[in-house]
């Protein structure tokens, strides 16, 4: 394989899509369909609408056993322009509390300082604390507790004070 097999091509496209900031990208061929959207509403299944179904393609190479990253709880478009986005350092399960039953590290509206713990990402029993890279207020929590997230996926939006 010379670096341009299907997973590579798809990954490049996904990377470029995420970086571009555009809203929507849709490809359709008779036996292949790919639909990318940053809007939460677009991810909901719609009756009789084939959505993002690469028919004859192998699964993408990064952990397809994981459930697709859940739709953001807050659409990216509603975030303030100067929001600081805290991203997942690696693929894993997103935990908002240090252990089951404990209080969440932060809630929307919490004041945080640089270095404060915001959540845990667990992969294969390795827990990594994700810390605030800026001081400010938690404006939005972008992922549901317990969801599988991809490396680089936005988790929190902070607004600097």
């Amino acid at each position: 394989m010379n670096g341009h097999d299907f997973p590579d091509a798809l990954k490049q496209l996904l990377d470029e899509f995420s970086r571009s900031g555009i809203r929507e990208l849709h490809i359709r061929k008779p036996d292949f369909e790919l639909y990318l959207s940053t809007e939460a509403s677009a991810a909901r299944p719609q009756a009789a609408t084939p959505v993002a179904a690469p028919v004859s393609a192998p699964p993408a190479q990064s952990a397809p056993a994981a459930k697709p990253a859940s739709a953001p709880l807050t659409p990216a478009s509603s975030l303030p322009a100067d929001a600081v986005i805290i991203k997942a350092p690696n693929l894993g399960t997103f935990y908002r509390a240090p252990k089951p039953g404990a209080a969440n590290y932060v809630e929307v509206g919490s004041q945080v300082q640089v270095g404060d713990e915001l959540c845990l990402i667990e992969v294969m029993k390795l827990f990594t604390a994700v810390r605030a890279s800026a001081s400010g207020t938690v404006h939005a929590v972008l992922v549901e507790d317990g969801a599988m997230v991809e490396g680089g996926q936005p988790l929190f939006a902070l607004v600097r004070d």
């Binding site: 097999d5 091509a9 061929k29 036996d31 690469p54 004859s56």
Partner: peptide
């Protein structure tokens, strides 16, 4: 069968 998909991507 993936070539067409890769081309489209």
């Amino acid at each position: 069968e993936n070539n067409a998909a890769i081309a489209a991507i």
